[in-house]
């Protein structure tokens, strides 16, 4: 085996590759914009986005969405983490609850919206709940399988040195599931944002989902596209950061 074959690509090459892909995407986008009137040209979109980012009302909408998404994400991570831990640790709980989890995970969450709306009302409540419904399951399922996959010898080691509950949690359990936990959290970040924006399409006063829909109805495609791109960029950057953290985990 030659050493060069299995060597990972150098940082410079990765960067060059990413820039290349980005340039190609913009070129395709420009071509696409001439084929369909719904797709605005890249330059118009960039201008619209720049204008939006200095617009007070747009910033209110942005803040609204980001606050709701952050809350939804934190709740997803906390609730999903705890339920996942419980299910991973207890075979009985798994037997009883995993059919429900599987079924719930399979339901297209958006069909629950009409049920959520009267319960949690317009505004933050229903958005956050929808965000949690989207973000919860990846954390839950990853943590649950992560706990189950901990080698049994680690548990026996903990017991043989008489480690207590907290000591086992701190020294064995949490470090052992860091990888799957981060994977779940990474997925939850973008999915809770999706859940929030999606619920903003339906009924809400403020939020970027609302902006996208309003721009669409008004035929303001550059504005619509700019907002969508902003959402993609936010979720992409956050996911990328977590993905890098994930790779560093032993």
């Amino acid at each position: 085996m030659t050493a060069t074959v299995s060597q990972p690509p150098a940082g410079g090459r990765v960067l060059a590759g990413s820039v290349g892909v980005a340039v190609a995407a913009v070129v395709l986008w420009e071509i696409g914009s001439h084929l369909s009137f719904v797709i605005p040209p890249p330059l118009d979109t960039a201008r619209a986005l720049a204008a939006d980012l200095t617009d007070a009302l747009f910033l209110v909408n942005l803040r609204e969405t980001m606050l709701a998404a952050t809350a939804a994400f934190l709740l997803s991570a906390a609730i999903g983490g705890l339920i996942g831990l419980g299910l991973g640790l207890s075979r009985v709980a798994r037997l009883l609850l995993s059919p429900i989890v599987t079924a719930m995970n399979g339901v297209p969450k958006i069909v629950l919206y009409p049920i959520l709306l009267p319960v949690f009302h317009l505004g933050y409540g229903s958005k956050i709940v929808m965000g949690v419904l989207f973000g919860l399951f990846p954390v839950l399922i990853n943590v649950m399988t992560g706990v189950q996959q901990i080698p049994s010898v680690y548990w026996r080691l903990a017991r043989s040195v008489r480690a207590g509950r907290w000591q086992t949690l701190r020294h064995i359990l949490l470090p052992a599931i860091r990888g799957p936990l981060l994977t779940g959290v990474r997925l939850a970040i973008s999915l809770s944002l999706v859940g929030v924006v999606l619920s903003e399409f339906f009924a809400t006063k403020y939020g970027l989902g609302r902006v996208v829909l309003r721009s669409y109805s008004a035929g303001d495609y550059p504005n619509m596209m700019g907002t969508i791109l902003l959402l993609i960029a936010v979720s992409f950057v956050l996911s990328l950061l977590l993905w890098r953290m994930e790779r560093r985990v032993r």
């Binding site: 080698p151 026996r156 017991r159 043989s160 040195v161 008489r162 020294h171 064995i172 470090p175």
Partner: peptide, 19 residues
């Protein structure tokens, strides 16, 4: 039950990879 005066070495690799 387990006793700290009794040391156990397991058949499997039991070193903790994160430590």
């Amino acid at each position: 039950g387990p006793d700290r005066a009794v040391g156990v070495m397991f058949q499997e690799d039991s070193t903790l990879p994160w430590k």
